[in-house]
Amino acid sequence: MNTSVRRIQAILVKDYKEFSRNLAVSSMIFLPLILAAFYARVGVDTIQGYFMSINITFSMVATYVQCCLIAEEKEKNTLRSLMLSPASTSEILIGKSTLTFISTMLIVGGCMYLSGYMPRNFVVMAIALMISAVFYIAVGTFLGLFAKSVMESSVIVLPVLAIFSLGPMGMAYIENYPILKVIEWFPSVQIILLGELLEKSFALGDLIKPFAVIIGWIIIAAIATVVTFKKRMVD
């Protein structure tokens, strides 16, 4: 167990140094912060508005950074030696996700501070944000295994940005186009609904649906990631 923690830590430290010296990718994570500050100054103070920057953080930081980290290992041909090292698959994946998780949480916190959003029930919202981050990181890992280079990963991540982060904008048109009902099941929409719910008085049972939906997405993303990872390992 001790060696396993040390390996995860080694991967985390290595990734942090590599990441912080790669300005092209690391400067991207400040974009949501700028957006959050801008929205707050314009006077947006709806839950929808707050979550706009948080959802963008999820795809720009969690998914994009994770995707870049994996893609870079592949591009530089270092993923193979990492896989052949004594570190197990889970140690590699946890090590690589930890950096993304920490930075996502920091940026989400920064966004909430800058936009002045303070949920009424902070603990529930924090848990929801954390498990959402896990989902987006899993998507990032999945995409990273497909992307061949860092360049490709910045393109491949755009659909995630469009579908999950900008998806909630479609909520306004649900009445005209019933087909848009599907977006209600997106994790990004569920977390907004949860945010709205937390501002009102709510029963514990109301919380089940958003959490269940987000966890469902995590399971789908995790299975897809593990299957692809196993496949890549054989190549």
Binding site: A10, I11, V13, K14, K17, K76, N77, T78, R80, S81
Partner: peptide, 16 residues
């Protein structure tokens, strides 16, 4: 032929 973590220094990559 094998890749290296190019942005790390020699010491850092050996530590890793």
């Amino acid at each position: 032929k094998e890749g290296c973590y190019e942005r790390l220094t020699i010491m850092e990559s050996l530590k890793f």
